[in-house]
Amino acid sequence: MGRQRLAKNRAFPPNLYQNTAGYFYYRNPQTKEQKGLGRDKARAFQEARKANAALATREPSSLVDWVLGRKDYTLAEWLPVYRELWDEKTQPAANTRYAANSLLKRLGEADLGNMRMRHIETVHVATYLEEFAKLSGAGMARNMRSKMRDIFRWAETQGVIDVGRNPVAATFNAGYKVKRERLSLEQFWAIHAHATTWAKNAMMLALLTGQRRDDIANMKFADYKDGFLHVAQGKSGGETKLQLDGAIKLTKVGVSIGDVVAGCRDLIVSRYLVHHTERVSSIKPGDKVRTGGLSDAFKEARERAKIEASEGRTPPSFHEIRSLSERLYREEFGSDFAQAILGHKSAQMTAKYDDLRGGWKTVRAK
């Protein structure tokens, strides 16, 4: 990635700069060499644009090739085309796009990237995924396999490979065992007893709402209105919007969502339900608690509660509260309700709990 431009230079053509003496100069992005262009701004801009245009004609574009009807690609050449097609079709959230680009970069740099799409067989893909799993773990290998399957599926639709010849389809997912210990309700209360005030609030919000760590950290008092807690889930880029009835209550816990929200109010002025209550270094009372802070506080309380994992496993993290919440709601109200409150998609949930007004899915107390 190139260096960050100064604000005053952001209107400049790419690769054009101006030094403190007022002289313009052009930096060749390929050779990193520089050439002075004098102090005439109009002339410098014109020369820079000509140079950029000349460079552009020397760089092959897979997307242009595809538009012009080219069908023969290496895997590395096809990936930019796939990225454009996939991005336009799915309109992914920022986090999803970032994760996908990371996988595409690694795939394009692999030896497999130099092979022609039509020549890639299942054995090539299986070998690559096996090595990928050794380097990055089974979970990442599963993500890579899913992405590769989609890459070749798009290639089928565009005539780059023959229909029915997706080489990823016959491969197996890398197997893995969940090493993290599940969190029991008894352990939850033990950890809760050793947590700070704001960490207690975060834990209770996570248990009653079933939401992810990032969403807990972002919850504001303004999100609770007309008896409902409004959550636009971050993982979906805000597309999954939930209205959770404040009256929703877990019998085994003994409080409702509304009770937990009310319990977050104190004498400190803050926009956020989970907020710092003491001054620590640059942190002031009322400041938002960052997601990493939630995990750290949970870990510290867990260690004070002396909760350890069994051999070969890791102790439960803050994220495991979501799993505990799902199990408690499923036990008390059924799997459809549990899926609804967590924001999972299912035909049953859509039929019973989906309120399309404004795109919000309303989950009411039973």
Rank of each mutant, 00 (worst) to 15 (best):
E84Y: 03
K32N: 15
A110P: 12
K200L: 02
R213Y: 01
V255Y: 01
D214P: 03
N28I: 06
A44N: 07
I257T: 07
H192W: 05
V231D: 01
S62C: 08
A94S: 14
P14R: 08
G2W: 00
T251I: 04
S256A: 05
A94Y: 02
R213H: 01
Q339G: 15
L37A: 06
G237H: 02
A174T: 12
E308M: 03
S325Y: 04
I341C: 08
P80H: 02
D355M: 03
A365I: 07
T90N: 09
A365Q: 06
A206T: 06
R116E: 13
L75W: 02
R145G: 09
M203C: 12
H194D: 10
T291P: 12
K361N: 14
F45P: 07
A42T: 14
R43K: 13
G234H: 04
A99V: 02
R302S: 08
F298K: 03
Y17H: 12
S136C: 10
R5G: 13
G237E: 03
R27S: 09
S310K: 13
M140I: 04
P80K: 03
G359F: 00
M148Y: 01
D354F: 00
T362W: 00
D111M: 06
K252P: 15
R364C: 11
A301K: 12
M140R: 13
L273N: 05
K299V: 07
S270L: 06
S325I: 14
T31S: 14
L37Y: 03
L294G: 04
S61L: 10
F298L: 05
L205S: 05
Q158C: 14
P285Y: 00
D245V: 10
R142M: 09
L85R: 09
A174C: 08
K366V: 13
T90G: 00
F172D: 14
D287P: 07
R330Y: 00
A202N: 09
A44Y: 01
R165E: 14
P29F: 00
R5W: 01
I341E: 06
T122Y: 02
K288W: 01
K366I: 12
M1N: 09
H194Y: 02
T196L: 08
G164H: 01
